[in-house]
Design a protein around this nucleic acid. Structure first.
Length: 490
RNA sequence: GGAGCUAUCGUCUAACGGUUAGGACAGCGCCCUUUCAAGGCGCUUGUACGGGUUCGAAUCCCGUUAGCUCUACCA
């Protein structure tokens, strides 16, 4: 029995990677890193209707973009092959293992064939509900009416149920939530394998395969969403029936939207791809998510200033521990993400930003020389919350204004400002220093203030009143383009 | 209906049972200023409710209310 920490993220391929899933994965990832353990990505695709290759790809790409790399799981380089020794990491490919475990349970009398049809179950459910009781298979007024003691063989179609303990409590020792007690009689004999033809064992359900896989993959810490708390008392007796020792369970609180409902598309972005397309940095997403329901303590202290809120991955990993995670859910506030993203952009190197900006830029971006890109990035990195905004604030470089608002023309392109613009048009020295001197001279000669000339130039050159500082705006456009755009105003 | 979880500014959160209930985001105001930002300074707003325990409760206990999760041959 090794003491190696192994965590896993086990999403089902539903067509998108949800931000809440990423947060859960992040905690599992941080915990593995913190303890020099291993992190597994496993695909839970026992619901064959929803699981497609494309949907699995979406999960892999989302995880990769988020920077949550896995030690075991699908090999992103080679489709269909696996990283790690406990594969395959798709449940649909592990049927043989599940079936052999179910056979084991049969042999020990801990599982049984159930011939109750959906129709008869539905009828009993209604009967229970009519008398104000919830329906539980082989519990309450349904007790003794099922197949538990009938010892059915597989000669007829059947599903498979797990014989849950009767009476007493099931205790969950949760690393985050503490001890939680569930009365056994609030549960029932649940289905572990779906309906199947005679002689067969059907496709196992989630609660069964998750237990078998977590043990087979030597998962030491099951870190998952709060929505699984109520599943755990079903799973605990199954671990025991299979002779397994229990992993450590840690249920992390949910992430809610502004209306305190589970976060979804209705709240704006919910899938990780949307955050990427909005121009957020993966690190900003990680930091923001990490700080929901968890407060990192650096040297035993929580952040006491804005600067201390901005933490590196290394600091996150170093500070991480399960005990500090909150037990209450938290609302996802995209404003905080915007703020963190902006801070991170400001702190980023120009080189990193140049590269990160590529997907948001027109193709001409790639052909610009390094000095120009450096200038472009350095004069916009403090004025953009996202990469997308950064790209937008540089759009004037390749998009000459087509229309000019009358109001702006009247206000800024006055005769005196235009005469200064005419002088600018005659400037010869377009080196940064030459331009600076030239502008100073023009301001002096025309007796106008920099802010007036700057605004007039912004309108003339970009069609708007917002652009990088005016020297940089001129330099980015370049002598030739500036002259071209000034033509109609002189 | 049953089982479970949760409850501090609008949001994220801090607070050995003793603090003027602290910080961050957002909002607002002022300063700086070449537009927009960034930066600086300041302000507004909070312990869900009701009972206990205690010299003393945001903190411990009970109840209420509200929200969420599970209650599937979904995961």
């Amino acid at each position: 029995m090794s003491s190696l920490v192994v965590t896993r993220f086990a999403p089902s391929p539903t067509g998108m990677l949800h931000i809440g899933g990423v947060r859960t994965a992040l905690f599992a990832w941080l915990f593995a890193k913190k303890n020099s353990g291993r992190f597994i990505l496993r695909i839970e695709d026992t619901d064959t209707d929803r699981s497609t290759e494309d949907n699995i790809r979406i999960i892999e790409e989302g995880m990769l973009w988020s920077g949550l790399d896995w030690d075991e799981g699908p090999d992103p380089q080679h489709l269909g092959s696996w990283l790690g020794d406990h594969g395959p990491y798709r449940q649909i490919l592990r049927m043989d293992i599940y079936k052999s475990k179910i056979t084991e349970l049969f042999d020990q009398g801990k599982a049984y064939r159930c011939r109750c049809t959906k129709e008869s179950l539905e009828e009993r459910r209604k009967e229970s509900e009519r008398s104000g009781k919830p329906f539980q298979y082989n519990r309450g007024m349904d007790f003794g009416r099922g197949c538990r003691d009938k010892h059915h063989d597989d000669s007829l179609p059947s599903s498979v149920r797990f014989a849950m303990p009767l009476g007493g409590d099931i205790i969950l020792e949760d690393a985050i939530k503490g001890m939680i007690k569930f009365p056994s009689d609030s549960l029932d004999d649940w289905i572990i394998a779906r309906w199947s033809e005679p002689g067969e064992i059907g496709v196992p359900t989630y609660n069964f395969s998750v237990v078998v896989d977590d043990v087979a993959m030597k998962v030491s810490h099951v870190i998952r969403g709060d929505d699984h708390v109520a599943n755990t008392p079903k799973q605990i007796p199954l671990f025991e029936a299979l002779g397994y020792t229990l992993p450590v369970f840690a249920h992390v609180p949910m992430i809610l939207g502004k209306d305190k409902q589970k976060l979804s598309k209705r709240h704006g972005a919910a899938s990780i791809t949307e955050f990427k397309d909005l121009g957020f940095l993966a690190q900003a997403v990680r930091l923001t998510l990490a700080k929901l329901s968890w407060t990192p303590k650096i040297d035993g202290k929580v952040a006491e200033s804005a600067e201390e809120e901005i933490l590196s991955d290394a600091q996150l990993i170093d500070a991480f521990n399960l005990e500090d995670i909150q037990t209450s859910p938290s609302v996802f506030d995209i404003d905080k993400l915007y703020w963190i993203n902006q801070k991170l952009i400001m702190n980023s190197t120009n080189e990193f930003l140049m590269k990160s900006l590529e997907p948001f830029m027109p193709s001409v971006w790639q052909t610009q020389d390094i000095a120009w890109k450096n200038l472009a990035v350095s004069c916009t990195k403090e004025r953009s919350r996202t990469l997308k905004e950064m790209a937008q604030s540089l759009a004037f470089c390749w998009e000459a204004p087509q229309i000019f608002e009358e109001k702006l023309i009247i206000k800024h392109l006055t005769e005196s400002n235009r005469s200064a613009i005419r002088s600018l048009n005659l400037l010869e020295d377009w080196t940064p220093q030459g331009l600076r001197d030239g502008l100073d001279r023009i301001l002096f000669e025309h007796k106008i203030a920099l802010k007036d000339l700057a605004q007039a130039l912004r309108v003339a050159l970009t069609g708007g009143t917002i652009s990088p500082p005016i020297h940089e705006t001129l330099l980015l456009l370049g002598e030739e383009e500036v002259r071209r755009r000034l033509l109609r105003w002189i």
